[in-house]
């Protein structure tokens, strides 16, 4: 800010408060709706929270909505968590290994493999839905956590990010390690991994959100309610004839909470991960 204009400051705060209000509005409405009694949501929605919050959340958590064939939220949240963690850990570990191979070894077809990994950037699941589904069906991976996570763990962005980062590590590190007689595994475990901790953590935040929010993929390959994840479960609840909105909105709040908390508590890592994966 280069000059002091009290009116401009007032105006700026007004704009920001309106902006924040608009951004928060849908979630506020969800919170309000999730605390109402079932009958309250037949008419126009009240603007203040009701008093049935605890019972709605308990009901959703323990028993789900049986008329919509929806399992308890506790189970769906657990499924989402397992899927998100499997995708995150899978992506990080295979990307670390392949970046290590590409930077610290000279071998035939290095460029070929690099481009092969790069191509995955151009093939999002949405554009190759049916053939990928067929592959997973042929491998008998429908309705399993392996089917939910393994097809999504290839990651060009993570591999590139780790490659970039490894390139900035001074040559002397490797030279010193080799003089001291360290082999590739020792070097990877005792030098590369500790140096990459911040990068790994930043990517972890981004990948966890990516995994948690998967929608199309679980929708296709799980038909068994035991594997329903929370994000796709909510869609199923809303497609009823008369959705029980007070319970649906309780599920929405529970589904949004984990990734939002991850962002709020790890904001610095999140921003780092976001800006670096895209550049």
């Amino acid at each position: 800010m280069v000059e002091n204009r009290p009116w401009a400051n007032f105006f700026a705060h007004t704009v920001l408060i309106i902006g924040v209000a608009l951004v928060v509005f849908p979630v506020y409405i969800a919170l309000v709706a999730s605390t109402q009694a079932p009958g309250e949501l037949m008419r126009t929605l009240p603007l203040l929270p009701g008093s049935h919050g605890i019972e709605n959340y308990t009901q959703m958590w323990q028993s789900g909505i049986s008329s919509a064939n929806s399992p308890p939220a506790a189970l769906m949240l657990w499924n989402s968590f397992v899927m998100a963690m499997a995708i995150t850990v899978g992506k990080l570990s295979i990307s670390l290994l392949s970046a290590f191979a590409i930077v610290y070894f000279r071998f035939r077809f290095r460029m070929f493999f690099f481009w092969l990994i790069f191509v995955t950037l151009m093939l999002p699941v949405e554009v190759r839905i049916i053939p990928t589904f067929q592959v997973v069906a042929d491998l008998n991976m429908l309705n399993s956590f392996a089917g939910l996570s393994i097809p999504l763990i290839a990651s060009a962005t993570a591999t590139f990010l780790f490659r970039q980062f490894f390139m900035t590590i001074p040559e002397e590190m490797l030279e010193a390690a080799r003089v001291d007689g360290a082999g590739p595994f020792k070097f990877f475990k005792d030098i590369l991994m500790p140096l990459s901790v911040t990068n790994i953590a930043a990517l972890f935040v981004i990948m966890f959100i990516y995994g948690w929010n998967q929608y199309l993929w679980p929708l296709l390959i799980t038909t068994d309610p035991d594997y329903t994840t929370i994000v796709m479960g909510i869609q199923r609840m809303t497609s009823e004839e008369n959705p029980q909105w007070h319970l649906v909105m309780a599920a929405v709040v529970m589904a949004a909470l984990p990734p939002v908390l991850v962002i709020l508590f790890m904001q610095r890592l999140f921003v780092k991960g976001l800006t670096e994966t895209e550049k």
């Binding site: 929010n213 929608y215 796709m232 909510i234």
Partner: peptide, 8 residues
């Protein structure tokens, strides 16, 4: 809001 799934 970045954390919220498109479907949600």
């Amino acid at each position: 809001p970045y954390a919220i799934a498109p479907a949600i």
